[in-house]
């Protein structure tokens, strides 16, 4: 078990290194001089040279890379060209907003997907099933910004129940935090929830037809026990994986939703960095996304092997 874990962790580290090389290469091979851009209109040669030297840009690329990756391991991702602030700090500042939104969205998504997907599967072609199909079809096809704007118009505009945007830190005002979270979480949650509903439905439907469900019924178990232990227990296993992927996606920042709700998350940080050609920030963000993705995959694998006795061999 721990050997398996070590092997997986090793694989993840290799992948992460690959991502780091790719990101670094991409940043340094695309045309355009970031330093010139960072200085903007206040250009003068002395400042230009100083900034280049500070950023280590006058060194050969392999040396630059080793320097960057070496400090990255210790948590130092360099400084922003734009603001001169440490990249790590910029990212850490954005984490609470992104993590709050991702967690709340997954919660919303699962609260929709598990009951709706299960009910749809239990009564195929019933009213619930048809309604669920329509709703999730809409959820999948409506663009997030459109959904977000609709929610703002209704719940912030007409009803005035929630703020139309902005993030309130949990530490400052728990109630305000929760209220600020509702609309963006609903927006991303509805989209993720639609995907997960479809998934849950087909997974439960498949589980219902399994031979061991017939065995469970033939034992004389109450319908609830059959559903809980022989249908859902098996059907929701693969949902762990899909949820992990959704969560990784949400944690990488949901740019569109962050724009619509003026949400200071990682997505906006990365977007801003692209616009500014703020390479250190962009490199740091992409590396972080890759790291989160790999870490979540590892966690999902671990969880899976705890839940499915067939895996942990």
């Amino acid at each position: 078990m721990s050997g398996y874990l070590l092997r997986r962790a090793g694989q993840s580290a290799v992948v992460l290194l690959g991502v780091a090389i790719a990101v670094f290469a991409l940043m340094h091979l695309v045309p355009g001089d970031p330093v010139r851009l960072a200085l903007g209109t206040r250009f003068d040669q002395a400042a230009y040279d100083a900034l280049r030297e500070r950023a280590g840009l006058d060194e050969p690329l392999p040396v630059q890379f080793l320097g960057w990756i070496g400090s990255a391991v210790t948590g130092d991702l360099g400084v922003s060209f734009r603001s001169g602030e440490p990249v790590t700090m910029l990212i850490v500042e954005r984490l609470p907003a992104t993590v709050s939104l991702a967690a709340a969205s997954i919660l919303v998504a699962l609260l929709i997907a598990v009951p709706l997907g299960t009910l749809s599967a239990l009564r195929p072609r019933s009213f619930v099933d048809s309604a669920g199909t329509v709703v999730s079809q809409v959820g999948i096809s409506v663009p997030e910004f459109w959904m977000g704007i609709l929610l703002i118009l209704l719940f912030a505009g007409v009803l005035d129940w929630f703020p139309p945007g902005g993030y309130v830190p949990l530490s400052e005002d728990p109630v305000g935090w929760l209220r600020s979270l509702v609309l963006p979480a609903l927006t991303t949650g509805l989209v993720s929830g639609s995907v997960l509903t479809r998934f849950t439905r087909s997974s439960v439907l498949e589980a219902l037809g399994a031979d061991h469900v017939r065995t469970a019924r033939a034992k004389g178990l109450p319908a609830r026990a059959v559903l809980r232990w022989h249908v859902l227990r098996n059907a929701l296993l693969p949902l762990v994986t899909v949820t992990g992927v959704q969560l990784a996606y949400l944690l990488s920042g949901v740019v569109v939703v962050e724009i619509v709700f003026a949400w200071p998350g990682l997505g906006l940080l990365a977007l801003q960095a692209v616009q500014d050609r703020d390479y250190p920030v962009l490199q740091g963000a992409v590396l972080l996304f890759a790291f989160v993705f790999l870490l979540l995959n590892l966690v999902v694998d671990l969880l899976y092997s705890r839940l499915d006795p067939r895996i942990s061999a």
Binding site: D211, T215, L221, N234, D308, R310
Partner: peptide
């Protein structure tokens, strides 16, 4: 169904064809 449930696995039991799939793999 409630009455049948008291018979299933109690008065009448069944054994099915495929022992590979007839048991729940995760319990």
């Amino acid at each position: 169904d409630a009455q049948l449930r008291t018979v299933r696995g109690n008065g009448i039991s069944m054994v099915f064809q495929d022992p590979m799939t007839s048991l729940n793999p995760v319990l």
